[in-house]
Structures are given as structure tokens and as C-alpha cells.
Design a protein around this nucleic acid. Structure first.
Length: 918
DNA sequence: GCAAGGTC
């Protein structure tokens, strides 16, 4: 039966194949359901007759796989060097169907042409609404007469689906608009900041990131950076923690029944004298009197039904599985039909779910089958309707088993464990809480109160099946009110405060969930991205630390005063998206204000890029590679690149003022033509060389420094870099080029057409620019400038300690070494690379002061500046911001010094200033 | 080569 003559053809589209199948199965009642393949092998098409409000229809149900359309910059802005990253805030973007979705698009087009209605069965959230409009766009392009309708369902169960089909509504453009805005903002912010910081930093420093650092991408994203922020913030808290000694009185009592440990009601005291006084009192009158005996029944409740975040957190805690791996395994189990859809926010079961049926399936399991049987036995009294966790995404139920398995042959250990977790969690959810009897005994010794408690488990209930949790039960002897005894031990003990632990993966997921970073389906991606980008590492206990790279990036933005690494930006965006989805603000309005703000922020960050560079300098050695971004003071196109045939060659000036013509495709393409070192000015003209190819090759108007070229050459010259220019070739031979790493004289021959060479940093020392040794053992550091050691310190009026360059007399910069032998050690060096002047900072202090590692001085600095909420980043940042660290000659932190605003201290004592950050 | 969001 394919519908009568009056029946209309309805194309129904779901967000994923599984939903299409469920909808088709439910609506057809499995009567007259036919299935055929579409062009995509995953997205099949179901057909059956159905009646909607008295109208007989021929239903076709198919699906997409998530978003059908992507957003990208127009082609001319897609290459990294195609434009200034700031332009990405307004560069035109386009929507397109990516190649792997073209077959789905084709199916939709073919079916839409033959239908009168289009009914959208996408998930009922904002992303789903946006995908709905993507489907509409594709279908109406081939059939503009389609009647468009939206089905709203809250669960894939009979009643909901039939109700949805009978109560079709128009789709909600506001919801879709909110996602459009989110996509565009994410793309523009992400691409602009990523290109900016990658090009600024990657080539400027020696970043050891495991693989080829030239391919290293220092990405920025509105989700990945706040995720990194959580990691860094906790790390800073741990780093800046000062252990504080505290004192505590412990009391125990041993009787025939066992030992009771009594805890001091004051907890612990930081005042030793005070604690000793109290302790002495207790010791002199040690008899304890029982002042209170309380007995209470305590319940330990089973967890809420399982949603994605909780699955990830528990798999991490119980099995140390990464969230990313957990989702991969869960997806496998889902695809094979063993568990329900794994990406769900929902942590409460619908009233209509047949929970008993799910338990029944598990009765045959060799391990937990007997528990399932007891659950189903009304006499056992273990059954309890599951709790409601308070989240509902209106699209999926909590994660639960959908098919029994005692383990499949193809399953890995992790498949087994994850399936077991899902089953046990489900069985726990429908179980009674554990019951315990708690006894608390309070005693009084010389007026001081102590307390002990114990617990007996009366009924384990859900804990019988949920073996991942325990409820420590410890018995204490019985006491009666007024009873007196002399404690077996009464001791005065000391301890130290401990820093909080580093964030575990479960902690990190909680932070993200709380601050709204990412979605249940993407959080694990953001965490993985931190590891992939070398921003953070994870130890065997699943605890995260930032890498130097991650810490430096966060530090740089923090020093700028920007909270780009905090979750606030995402929170503001989320509020705006909500306003759009409610129609309170328009998409264009939000896009304009948000992008305007972010562009100002971007431009400001770029102005303050020195902060990023300074932060990187703390951890990384400067590279002598030509910097990707910094050298481009001008970028005028000279010619198309004949080597990569993709990008243009542009006129550039490096940091030292030397000119070259290099390919914009650097570092993938290393094509470069170095120009004579005697060039003082170079400007691209509109004149085109009529002999060099590939063209056009624009001629350059050169000015040479008169004294650096032979007298018979003109100081002004209109030249071509394409290979035809004999004068330019001669001047290169005579004067050399501005390429420092290729020693003068080792110049490309212009006769080869376009002179090409690569700049290798191998073997070149950053101090003297000579090959044959590394910067850590540069002879210039040890013998070249011994004279500097006898120089006195040039203390200027500002109190800023500095010294002048031995050679040119300019003030030197104070830097921190990060080489293996001298990490954390400070040195002065001339900012001009011509001089190669260098001296260790500590050699100026008569050599009497030992070195102090960067880490320990940082910690000392935090202790000095700690005030108010000065823990963690605040403490450390304040000290670093003031630019000073004080350590006594013995290496102990100096306390009680007054820190002047210029970052130095005046001290009556002869404490040594070990480090003054520039 | 860049984001985050769907999903296979």
C-alpha cells in the first residue's frame, strides 16, 4: 500500500540515521515499512503510508549526519598569508556543503523534488534547529513549493512521536540564527587569533613540541583556551601554595571493643604556643568525660541516571580512561546496539520508559544477573524509581543498556568495562540507597572537646551492584553518657597545609560543565586539543599540568589584562545567543557588537604583543630563524612564486633592516631572494619586467648606501629580482646580502634566475651567530667580554638596575636563560645583534651570590606579595608584575620588605637582589 | 595550517 491517489508525499529528515529509523518504525507501527538505500551508505530511506490530521500521506523518512553545511572564509582569505589576520573579523564568509556530505545533499535533492511537504525531525535544540534550516536550504533550492514543517518531540517513544507528527509547527528561525551567530563568531575569533599568535611566536622561539615545530599551530579557540585556563589556574595555585605548619591535638582510646580515634573540635591551630598551652592543660587533667552520644540512620543514595559528562567523569575516575577514548568506545557500543545514544545531557528517565524490561534483560549475566533478579523480586524490596538529576535535552534518554551481553569476542577490555559501568550504573539507579547507622561520641578533656564517629552499614542495597563506590564503615566501641576514661594516647602533632591537587580529567570536565564551555558532545574534544597542541600534559593519575607553551600563552594574555583564557567570554557569548534564540536581539546586532569588541581586543592584543613575547621568553630560547610575522614590516607583492606556484613573493625587511623578497607560503615554501646588504630603501613600483618569468615581476626602486657600494655604481637603481638584472647581481657579489645566517659572500647566484636558498638554523648560536656550537656554550659568554665583569653596575635614577653595552654603550636588556645548564639564570645582553655583548647578571655581584632556580624564586616572590586573595595567580602575578624577586643570601624568602612601586626594595639589611625582571 | 558544533 503506497497511499491513495490523494495522498501527498512527505519528506521527513532526522539528524541521524538512528532517529530516522526510530521515527519510521514508530509512525509505521512496522506496518508496510519499506527500506531502501540513499546515495550515502549510512543514511537509508524508509517509506510507509501514514495519516496526518486526516490527510493520507506517503512518508519518506531519511536523515543527515549532523550539520550539512559548513562556514568558511572565501577562498582568497583562506591562506594564512593572504591577508592581515585582523581582516578576518570582516572578511566575507560562505556556506558550503563539504565533500563528505555531498551524497547526502544529493539524496535530499532527489527526494525533495518528488515531495510536497518537508518535515524536519532534527534534535530539539538550537543546533538541531540550525541543521533544520540547512536541510530547508538544500531542499527548497530544488523545490521551492515545499511546505515546510517541524516536528517537536521530547523522546523517541510512541506517544511523543505520534503527537509530534500530528502537531507540526513552523521551524524556529531565532534558534537557527543563534547558531549562525555562534558559528561566525567562533570562526572569526579562532582564525584571527590562531594565525596571529602562531605567526608571532612559532618562529621567534625554539619550541620543543615533539614534532616538526614549523608545522606547530598555536591555536586559539573560545572553548579550548578557557579549558587551558582552568588547567593553568590550578597549576598556579599549586605552585604558589606556601606550606604552613599547623598544630593539632590527637586523642585515642583503646578498649576491649577496639580503638576510637577522637578528633579535636578546633581542627588545627597555626599558633604553636597557644596549642602547647591547651595541650598542657589536657595532659595535666587527662580524664575524658563522655558529653554526648548520638545515633543516626544515614542513607547513601545511588547516582542519578547516567549522562555523557557523568559517563566520562566516572570512566576517568574508575578506569582512568580519557574522555576522548571513553566516547570512542561508547560510540562503538552504541553503533552495535548495546547501549543507548551516548551523547545526552539527560539524567532522568521519562515516566514512560519501561525500566523493568531493561533490568529483565540483564538477569542472565553471570556476575550481576542475580542482582537484577533480586531487583525484580518485589519481596526483596530493593527496587526504587530512579532519581531525577534535573537535566533534560528533550532528545535522548539517559545512557542505559539496550541489549544484553556477557561480553562480545570483538570487545576490548575497555569495551567490557564501559558496558559494565553502563549496566551497573543503570541497576544502581533503580535500587534503594545504602543504609548505615552512624554513632558520634563527644568527649571533654579539661574543657577541650573531641569527637569520634563510626558507621555500620545496615543494608548495602545499590552498593551491592555498584562496586565502583564504597562507603567506608568503621566500628567504634560503645560509650555511655557521663562515662569517664583516661585516653590511651594524647599527643601534640604538627602538620603542614597542602596545596590543592592538580585538576584531574573529571575535575576539568566539571569546570567546563559549570562554566558552560563546550557541549556534552564536544568537551572531550577540547581536552584532547590541549594535549594535541602541546598546551598541557596529563599524568598517570589523569591530572593535568600546563606545558611551558600553555603557561606562557595564558601568562601573556593575562599580562595584557585580557581574560581571553577565562570562561567569561564564552559566557557572554552564550547569553547573547540566548537573546537571539528568544528574539530579544537580532543575529546581525549580536554579530556586529561581538565582532567589534573582539576586533578591538585583537588589535589591542597585537599592540601588546610584547607581553606574549616576554612571557614566552621566560620559558623558551629565542630562535634565530627569520620570524614569520615580525619580519613583515612591508608586504608588497613582487611576483608569483615560481617554486611553490601557490603564493606570491613579497618584499620584506627583517628585524635588522635587511631586505629580501620571500614567498608568502613560508615556511612551507622557502623561496627567498636576498637583496644586497647595502640597500637602504626599496619600494615596489608598478613597472613590470618584460623578460623575467613567471610574471608579472614588478621592478623595485632601490637606494643604496653610498659608502657601501663602489663609486662607479649609482646609489639609485630601478632593479629586477627575476634574474635579468646584472647590476643587482654584481652588487650582491660585492656587498653580500642581509642574510646573516648565510655568511657574507656565500650569496646566491643571480644567474640561476631566481636565487633560492633555505635558512637553516642548524648550528647557529643565538649570541654570536656563528656555527659550530650551540648558544649554551657560546665562547662569547665566557671569554669574549670578560671586561664587562669588572664594570660597575650602572644604577640609574629610576633605581632600575642596568648596565651598558661594552661595545655600543646602549643600555642592555636583562633576560632569563632557559638553556639546560643555566635555566633561570639572568644575563644582560645588548639589544643590537651587531655587538654580541653578553654578561651574566650574577657575575656583577662579585660572584658571591649563588644562583637560584626560576621555580623557587617564583615561589618566594609569591610569598612576598601575598595579600588578600593573593594566592595562586594573583600572588605570583603581582610579584612578577612588580618585576622583582627577593631571596635572602641563605635562599630563604625575605619577608616584611617594603616593595617600592618601581619594583625594587630599599633595605637596611644587605639582602641580595637576585633577579630583576626587565 | 585556524573554531566549535553536529555525527559515521
Amino acid at each position: 500500500m503506497s497511499g491513495g491517489r490523494n495522498s501527498i508525499r512527505v519528506l521527513n529528515v532526522a539528524e541521524k540515521p538512528s532517529v530516522a529509523k526510530s521515527v519510521a518504525t514508530i509512525l509505521s507501527g512496522n506496518q508496510g515499512l519499506r527500506v531502501r538505500d540513499g546515495r550515502s551508505r549510512y543514511n537509508r530511506i524508509f517509506e510507509f503510508p501514514y495519516t496526518i490530521n486526516g490527510q493520507s500521506t506517503n512518508m519518506l523518512v531519511t536523515s543527515v549526519t549532523g550539520h550539512l553545511i559548513e562556514l568558511e572564509f572565501e577562498d582568497r582569505f583562506r591562506k594564512w598569508h593572504s591577508c592581515d589576520p585582523a581582516q578576518l573579523f570582516q572578511a566575507p564568509v560562505r556556506k558550503f556543503v563539504p565533500s563528505d556530505k555531498l551524497d547526502i545533499k544529493k539524496t535530499l535533492e532527489e527526494e525533495a523534488r518528488r515531495c510536497q511537504w518537508l518535515v524536519l525531525w532534527l534534535d530539539c535544540d538550537r543546533e538541531g534547529e540550525n541543521i533544520a534550516f540547512e536541510v530547508v536550504q538544500v531542499c527548497t533550492a530544488v523545490n521551492p513549493h515545499l511546505t515546510i514543517r517541524r516536528a517537536h518531540f521530547s523522546a523517541l517513544i510512541d506517544r511523543d512521536i505520534h503527537e509530534a507528527a500530528q502537531n507540526l509547527v513552523p521551524p524556529n528561525k531565532f534558534f537557527a540564527d543563534a547558531v549562525d551567530a555562534r558559528q561566525e563568531i567562533d570562526l572569526r575569533i579562532g582564525a584571527s587569533f590562531t594565525r596571529f599568535q602562531t605567526m608571532l611566536l612559532r618562529d621567534a622561539f625554539v619550541i620543543d613540541a615533539g614534532n616538526d615545530e614549523r608545522n606547530l599551530v598555536l591555536s586559539y579557540g573560545p572553548c579550548q583556551f578557557p579549558t587551558l585556563g582552568f588547567v593553568v589556574e590550578r597549576y598556579w595555585e599549586v605552585q604558589s601554595h606556601e606550606p604552613e605548619e599547623f598544630w593539632v591535638i590527637n586523642c585515642s582510646h583503646k578498649s576491649d571493643e577496639g580503638i576510637s580515634t577522637f578528633n579535636w573540635m578546633r581542627g588545627h591551630l597555626f599558633d604553636y604556643t597557644c596549642t602547647v598551652v591547651i595541650y598542657e592543660m589536657c595532659v595535666q587533667e587527662p580524664t575524658a568525660t563522655v558529653t554526648n552520644v548520638r545515633k543516626q540512620e544515614k542513607l547513601k543514595y545511588p547516582p542519578h541516571p547516567l549522562n555523557t559528562i557523568e559517563l566520562e567523569k566516572r570512566a576517568s575516575r574508575y578506569f582512568r580512561m580519557s574522555s576522548e577514548h571513553t566516547m570512542k568506545v561508547a560510540e562503538d557500543l552504541y553503533q552495535a546496539g548495546f547501549i543507548s545514544y551516548p551523547r545526552t545531557e539527560t539524567d532522568s528517565f521519562s515516566q514512560r520508559t519501561n525500566l523493568h524490561a531493561i533490568v529483565e534483560e540483564q538477569q542472565g549475566h553471570p556476575v550481576w544477573g542475580s542482582y537484577a533478579q533480586r531487583l525484580l523480586d518485589p519481596g526483596a524490596g530493593i527496587w526504587r524509581n530512579p532519581s531525577n538529576g534535573g537535566h533534560d535535552d528533550k532528545a535522548h534518554p539517559p545512557i542505559h543498556p539496550t541489549k544484553f551481553s556477557a561480553g562480545e569476542r570483538s570487545w576490548s577490555q575497555d569495551h567490557l568495562r564501559l558496558y559494565e559501568l553502563v549496566v551497573r550504573h543503570f541497576l544502581a539507579c533503580v535500587s534503594q540507597p545504602a543504609v548505615g547507622a552512624e554513632t558520634t561520641v563527644d568527649i571533654d578533656i579539661a574543657g577541650e572537646l573531641f569527637s569520634a564517629s563510626g558507621r555500620v552499614i545496615l543494608a548495602k542495597n545499590y552498593l551491592d551492584v555498584y562496586c565502583f563506590e564504597s562507603w567506608g564503615g568503621s566500628l567504634i566501641p560503645s560509650y555511655v553518657l557521663g562515662q569517664q576514661f583516661v585516653p590511651t594516647s594524647l599527643t601534640l602533632d604538627s602538620g603542614v597545609t597542602r596545596p590543592p591537587p592538580l585538576l584531574s580529567e573529571a575535575d576539568l570536565l566539571s569546570c567546563m560543565d559549570k562554566e558552560g564551555i563546550g557541549t556534552d558532545a564536544t568537551m572531550h574534544d577540547h581536552i584532547k586539543k590541549l594535549l594535541d597542541r602541546f598546551y598541557a600534559t596529563k599524568d598517570a593519575n589523569t591530572r593535568f599540568s600546563p606545558t611551558n607553551l600553555g603557561e606562557a600563552l595564558v601568562m601573556g594574555y593575562d599580562d595584557m589584562g585580557y581574560q581571553l583564557w577565562k570562561p567569561y567570554l564564552r559566557a557572554v557569548m552564550e547569553r547573547d545567543m540566548k537573546a537571539v534564540s528568544e528574539g530579544a536581539k537580532s543575529k546581525d546586532e549580536v554579530l556586529e557588537t561581538c565582532l567589534h569588541q573582539m576586533k578591538s581586543c585583537f588589535l589591542d592584543a597585537r599592540l601588546n604583543k610584547v607581553k606574549l613575547l616576554q612571557a614566552m621568553e621566560i620559558f623558551f630560547e629565542r630562535s634565530n630563524r627569520p620570524a614569520g610575522e615580525e619580519q613583515h614590516t612591508s608586504r608588497e607583492v613582487i611576483r608569483p612564486c615560481g617554486l611553490c606556484q601557490e603564493s606570491n613573493m613579497v618584499l620584506k625587511q627583517n628585524r635588522d633592516g635587511n631586505f629580501m623578497v620571500g614567498c608568502l607560503g613560508y615556511p612551507q615554501c622557502r623561496n627567498v631572494v636576498w637583496l644586497p646588504g647595502s640597500v637602504s630603501e626599496a619600494a615596489v613600483t608598478t613597472n613590470i619586467c618584460n623578460s623575467c618569468t613567471p610574471g608579472p615581476v614588478y621592478l623595485i626602486q632601490f637606494k643604496f648606501r653610498r659608502l657601501e657600494i663602489p663609486p662607479d655604481y649609482n646609489a639609485s637603481h630601478l632593479g629586477c629580482i627575476g634574474g635579468c638584472d646584472e647590476i643587482l647581481r654584481q652588487l650582491i657579489e660585492i656587498c653580500g646580502t642581509g642574510n646573516r645566517t648565510s655568511a657574507r659572500g656565500r650569496v646566491p647566484t643571480a644567474s640561476s634566475g631566481s636565487a633560492q636558498q633555505s635558512n637553516s638554523r642548524q648550528g647557529a648560536c643565538i649570541y654570536c651567530h656563528q656555527g659550530g656550537h650551540s648558544s649554551t656554550d657560546c665562547p662569547s659568554q665566557f671569554s669574549g667580554h670578560q671586561g664587562a665583569r669588572s664594570r660597575g653596575r650602572n644604577v640609574q635614577q629610576s633605581d632600575e638596575s642596568t648596565i651598558s653595552c661594552d661595545i655600543c654603550g646602549a643600555p642592555c636588556a636583562l633576560r632569563t636563560a632557559n638553556t639546560a645548564n643555566n635555566r633561570g639564570r639572568k644575563f644582560y645582553s645588548c639589544q643590537s645583534q651587531e655587538c654580541n655583548f653578553f654578561v651574566w647578571e650574577d657575575s656583577l655581584n662579585n660572584g658571591s651570590v649563588g644562583r637560584s632556580g626560576q621555580r623557587s624564586t617564583m615561589r618566594a616572590s609569591a610569598s612576598n606579595s601575598r595579600q588578600g586573595s593573593g594566592r595562586g595567580r594573583g600572588g605570583r602575578g603581582a610579584a612578577r608584575g612588580a618585576g622583582v624577586t627577593f631571596v635572602s643570601a641563605t635562599g630563604d624568602p625575605v619577608s616584611g620588605r617594603r616593595i617600592l612601586s618601581n619594583g625594587l626594595t630599599r633595605s637596611a639589611w644587605n639582602f641580595s637582589v637576585l633577579a630583576v625582571a626587565s
